[in-house]
Every structure is written in structure tokens, then in C-alpha cells.
Design a protein around this nucleic acid. Structure first.
Lengths: 343, 343
DNA sequence: TTGTACGCGTTATCAT
DNA sequence: ATGATAACGCGTACAA
């Protein structure tokens, strides 16, 4: 049975061979056309091939291309928590860029779970990825040996390891925290309470605490840290603890939430306990979605730029893929302080 | 140059051929092993192949598999808005299932934009997808002819078209809205205000309005509809409009927000305007994230189950892919009313 | 300017 | 019980 356009089953995808047959040239010529090597054929053939491709709206089979070129066009982004808008913004920024340059982006959710992250990393080899963006849950390079062994191009987002290996994209956590500390000092606060999850767990928290403390303690203020578990937030306990540190002594205090959900909790607390700011208590926090402003347009916020982080990391990843080198650098994306009246 | 294990470049992926060489069998035998046809070889060879596969931790190249089998193992999910937690939950449910059965899921964001959705649909053929989950922005089948022509397995999520074509997964919008209407009646409200974006735009809004109105008007209550644009929400205007419809006439009124962001706006409004419920004004709304409860634990909510919707749609999509048929059905996933004290 | 033929890693048919 | 081999759709030396 001859292999031409007359014996195709209906709706079967049209291949480069089909186009070649219809245009009465070889697949090599069609392939050249597809890759823009128009100078290697006559103007007429080029026109003819182009027309026939349009008519049959042929599009090359990416799977075959990938097999031939030993690459895949899909990139993975392993985020710490899809429920967190920060992670979603990382994704959006990366997706926008990658889509524009012909990659697809697969979202992988480690869900803030160390074990799940570990498992996904080992399963990584099954997926056929060209590269990986990671917002890690763990912070030791050692935990990522599975990934190292893969020899895959990688970018680290939002956090960094004890030991540099892959390039990193982060917010300027320390710098912006220093600015925040200075702002608190300038506003005449006398004490600072930092509300956060376990500080030791991530580098970003460490840097934020460090930045604030440095600046604030240089001005002679006292800082307290309240460590909580976001998933088991005990509003009353926190409220009492804050009470101990403030009311009883009539001291003008700034409360800093290092993460959006905690800021949200804080706002909820403020509403229920009917706290007024900023005469006595000032509130400020890290938040990345406009949503929280719907609720309280007056909040003073530190806003990061996760979308830009995603975009930048995607660009650098593609550069890595193309050059196949590993520039172990750190790029800082600037955060900004949006002043409301809550601080 | 002989093609065996001795001339491999370091770190090159190990192939079925490599395993065959090492095990001193043909690739056919290895392939049989991989597909579990252990009865078609001696126990010793099976053991040997298995061991060598482990030792070299070989894993089959999915790209090659896909090329051979004329399928890809990636599925797309085109959501209306990644900033909306509902869409994210759809994704999560689908991903969880698909991952477990060996597919990867690519998230595509139409961003609530009709033009972008249209463009993505036409570009769909470039991506090599096994199937597509769609949470449509448009509601006319006609707008999806590009997709129809592709002959791709498709599931429609959260909304449905004027004309059935692909199977649909939805919340039981009408039913749950009737229950909500009944609850409002039972609680002794005298009027109902529905806060929503343009009703005509999506079927789910139509069904919700219909369900509420049916039940409530059967009991003789009056309903008002306030249509707003989520992206240009004018709190004062809405507050004034509500004022016109309520305070001035001292009527016990229930306000229903058909969508989480609107409920959030409503709560923000309530806080700023210092409204008390439910003596005079009752508030209830559709919301799918626990987040809103952080803010106000007392809210009465209608909670859908988008994660289950995602999971179910993924299952049905895979079934479609395997059978290659199109059961144009509608599956309803139950929503539930979570009673707080705000209504 | 254009065509032939091989290989990418698998699967599956047909031999032996 | 096992092996040789032809596809899958594409890219690209190498020829012509």
C-alpha cells in the first residue's frame, strides 16, 4: 500500500511527509523551510511549501522533535505551596516567559512537605524535563543530591541552601527588612514584636529577622519574637502574649508579620479584639496579594515581586539550558514598602 | 565505532539498548520485561535484566514512548483565573490524580480574558496534549470550534455551554442555591440582595440566582440584584445601594455574595461601616478557601468542592482518552452550606 | 537547489 | 524463550 496523501485515515495528523508529498519535494526540503533556511531552495518551492503548510495547517510534532534532539520542551516548577499566592505568582511569571519562547511549564506542588519534596525529587528522572525551577522546602544542599545527580539545569527560588550550587533568585530580604526597621524607628516605636513561623527553618526568615533587628536594636529598641505554627494558629494565645509584652506597660509597639497568612491572622485578631492603630499598636507585614487590602486598605505592607522572580528565574534557566553551564550566583529582586496608616 | 557500554559519554542517559547489552539479551527481551511479560522469558534472564535495570537505574524514555504510541503523557488544564483559589483547587485535584496514573498536568491560564482564551485555543494544536480540562470563560460552544476541530478529549469544568458537546463537571449550583434560599426564608429574612458580577455571563451565576430566587420568592420575599465589576469594585457605591434597599426601611435583609472576592469585599465593607449581623443585615456567600474564615470565623458560607471537581474531571478525561468516546454528560459535585452566625 | 538515508529510544510483529 | 526489524515523525550529514 503506497504511503501518500490518498490513503490517510480521516483526522490523522498531517506529518512532514504529507507536506513533502503534496509539495512534491523531499522531507529534507520541507524541514529546511521550517527552519527558515529559505536560501537553500528556490523561491517557488518555498512559496509552494509555505502555502501547502498553511492549507493543511501542519504543525511539527514536538514529541518527534524532542526525541531527535534529545531535549524536551517542558520545564518543571516545584513550588512550596500552591495555596500560597506567592508560589502562584512565581508560576505566573515563569509561565509567561516560557510560553513566549516555546516551552511548557509543569507545576509541581511539594506542599511544604519535606517528605513529599524528597519523593518528587527522586521521581524527577521519570519526567522528561529540560530544566527545573525549585522553591525548596528544605534548606540543605545535601537533601538535593538526587537532583544534583540528574545533572539537570536548575534555578533556586525564594530561598537558598547552606552551600551554593545552583543560581538563586531571592527578594532582597535583608535590605528591605533594614528599611522596614528604620521606618519603625522613625515612626517612634519603642518595641518590636516579630510574628513568624520557626525562624531557623528558612533563610528568608532568618534574613528578615536579622535585617529588622540590626536596624532597630541599633536605635536601642527591644525586639521580641513570637514563633507560631501557621496551621495551628492560636489567636488567643498570640493575643495574650502580645498583651504581656505591651498593654501592661503602655509601650508603643510595632508588630511585624513575616508572612501574609500571619498578617491576615493579625488583622482578624485586631478586628475581634478591637485594637486601634497606630496610636499604641502598629501593624505591618509581608504580603504579596492585593486581596489583603480589600479587607483593610490602610495596612502598611512589604510587597515582594514574586512574578518578576518567576520571570527572571525562567530566563536564567533557559540561558542555562542553552549554554549548559552553571553560574552559581544570587540575583536579588527588590521588594518595596507600601505605606498605609497601620504603622 | 562499536555501539556498546564502553564508549558512552559520561552522564549520558542509559537506554534500553544499554540494558540489553549489559544483560546480554536483545532489546525485545528487555522491552518484554518492562511490560511485565515475565512468562515469555526464563526466570534467570528476568532476574538478570531486573538487576541490571536497578543497578543502572534505568527508566524508559517517555518521549520515545510517546512518539511510538502516538500519544503524549501531558494533559492541559486551562483555568479561568489562577489568582482565584477555586481554579487552583481544580488544578490540585486534577494533578493529584493524574500524577498518580503517570500523566503530567500543564496549567494554562486564560486569565478570564476572552481574547486570550481564544488565542490559547488556537495555539492548542502546537502543544502535544493527550487531553484538555477547560474552565471556560466563554459560554458558547461556537467559540470553541478550534478545539472541536482538534478532536482532542476534553472535559468542561465549572460552567457549561449553550449546547452540550463535551462532558461537564459542575457544582450543584441550582440545588445548593435553593437550599440557601430556604435557609434565608427559615431565618426570617424579609428581603434578599444578591451581589454578583454580570449574571448573564456564566451559567453558574444564572443557576445560583435562579435557585435562590425560586425558593425565596415562593415564600413571598423580594430579591434585588446588584451587579458589580470585581476589578473595579466601588465599596461606597455598593454600600449606598444597599443602604437604599435596607436601612431606610428597617427591613431584615440577607446579602448573598455569589463569589469569594465579593464576599471579601462585603466583609471589608461591613468592618469599615461597622455593620452588625445578623439582627438587621445577614451576610452569606460562596467561598472555597479557609482563608476567609481566618478573618471572620462567624461567616456562613456556601463551600463548593473544586478539588473533587478537578479530580473527577481528570478521571473522566483519562477514561475518555482510553476509550476515545465522548459521553456528553453532566456530573454534579455537591456543595455544602457551612453555618456560622453571620446569617 | 534538492534528495537519500540514517538515527533518536521505544513498541510490536514476525521469525526462529 | 528470544532475536531481528520495521515503524513513529523529525533533523541532518552527505550526495548529487
Amino acid at each position: 500500500m503506497p504511503d501518500n496523501e490518498y490513503n490517510k485515515i480521516p483526522n490523522a495528523p498531517v506529518t512532514i511527509q504529507d507536506i513533502a508529498n503534496l509539495a512534491d519535494v523531499s522531507i529534507a526540503t520541507v524541514s529546511r523551510y521550517l527552519h527558515g533556511h529559505l536560501n537553500r531552495m528556490s523561491a517557488e518551492t518555498a512559496e509552494r511549501i509555505g502555502r501547502i503548510i498553511k492549507e493543511n495547517n501542519y504543525v511539527p510534532n514536538k514529541v518527534a522533535q524532542n526525541l531527535k534532539q534529545k531535549t524536551s520542551s517542558t520545564i518543571g516548577i516545584m513550588v512550596a505551596n500552591v495555596d500560597d499566592s506567592f508560589s502562584v505568582e512565581l508560576y505566573k511569571g515563569a509561565e509567561e516567559y516560557l510560553f513566549s519562547v516555546g516551552y511548557e511549564l509543569v507545576l509541581i506542588n511539594s506542599n511544604g512537605d519535606v517528605d513529599r519534596e524528597q519523593q518528587l525529587l527522586t521521581e524527577m528522572r521519570n519526567r522528561q524535563l529540560a530544566g527545573l525551577l525549585v522553591q525548596p522546602v528544605q534548606n540543605k544542599l545535601h537533601d538535593f543530591t538526587a537532583l544534583k545527580d540528574l545533572g539537570l539545569p536548575v534555578m533556586i527560588l525564594d530561598r537558598h541552601f547552606d552551600e551554593p550550587y545552583w543560581p538563586v533568585i531571592e527578594s532582597n530580604n535583608e535590605e528591605i527588612s533594614q528599611q522596614l526597621g528604620q521606618l519603625i524607628v522613625d515612626k517612634g516605636y519603642e518595641e518590636v514584636i516579630i510574628l513568624t513561623e520557626t525562624v531557623a527553618a528558612t533563610t528568608s526568615r532568618q534574613l528578615r529577622v536579622k535585617g529588622i533587628q540590626e536596624q532597630v536594636e541599633a536605635a536601642g529598641l527591644i525586639t521580641h519574637i513570637i514563633e507560631v505554627d501557621e496551621n495551628h494558629f492560636d489567636g488567643d494565645a498570640v493575643h495574650n502574649r502580645i498583651g504581656e509584652l505591651t498593654n501592661h506597660r503602655q509601650i508603643k509597639t510595632a508588630i511585624v508579620a513575616l508572612k501574609e497568612p500571619l498578617l491576615l491572622q493579625l488583622v482578624g485578631l485586631k478586628i475581634r479584639k478591637n485594637v486601634k492603630y497606630p496610636q499604641q499598636i502598629g501593624i505591618v507585614g509581608f504580603a504579596d496579594t492585593p486581596m489583603i487590602n480589600i479587607l483593610d486598605p490602610d495596612l502598611t505592607l512589604v510587597r515582594q515581586n514574586p512574578m518578576e522572580m518567576g520571570r527572571m528565574s525562567a530566563k536564567m534557566l533557559v540561558a542555562q539550558i542553552k549554554n549548559d553551564d552553571l553560574p552559581a550566583d544570587i540575583v536579588h529582586i527588590k521588594a518595596e514598602i507600601i505605606e498605609g496608616t497601620s504603622l
